[in-house]
């Protein structure tokens, strides 16, 4: 039985409707585009860095509820974290999304990201949930050019 309500948790719907840190950042150190060619979802991530620590982050663009809520929640979780910590959190998030829908969640490591566990039932939506994260990690590496969900990882 599919219950789409398990996918669209209230927290996700809230972030979709009222995204946090939504908008451009004129004095950003890095602006990184993320694009999903399969559905046309597109976000810009604005990043201010203090060394390799995230000082502030915002995003703008358009996408589905899953991608927008994921971008919004991400901006609230990475502030003040070092690049390696952000990458570790993204890794934990990706592993969870790819895991068996029946397997237990490491709620301690995942924290608020556990609201996306419903995505495990819908593998095509993993790219929605990770679009902003891919862009953020690229921004942290000050990568040239837009990142795409179709370019590896």
């Amino acid at each position: 039985m599919s219950d789409t309500r398990a996918l669209y948790e209230e927290v996700i719907l809230d972030h979709n409707k009222n995204p946090k840190n939504f908008g451009s950042m004129p004095d950003a150190d890095v602006v990184q585009e993320g694009y999903n060619p399969l559905c046309g979802d597109s976000f810009k991530i604005y990043l201010k860095l203090d060394g390799d620590t995230v000082q502030s982050v915002s995003f703008e663009g358009h996408g589905c509820a899953i991608s927008k809520a994921s971008a919004s929640l991400m901006t609230t979780l990475v502030k003040g974290r070092k690049r390696s910590e952000v990458e570790e959190l993204f890794h934990v998030f990706q592993e969870m999304l790819k895991s068996d829908p029946e397997s237990p969640l490491d709620t301690e490591k995942l924290g608020k990201l556990k609201v996306f566990s419903g995505v495990r039932e819908y593998p095509v939506r993993i790219k929605c949930a990770t679009l902003a994260w891919h862009a953020l990690v690229a921004a942290l590496h000050q990568q040239e050019g837009p990142v795409s969900t179709e370019s590896g990882s």
């Binding site: 996918l7 559905c39 509820a65």
Partner: peptide, 26 residues
Amino acid sequence: CAHPHDIGQILDGEGVAVRAGHHCAQ
């Protein structure tokens, strides 16, 4: 109120198969 992907997902949950996306006609 909703993105095409989310609409397609909700419809799928009700047994209704539709397409969401750019339909290879960007």
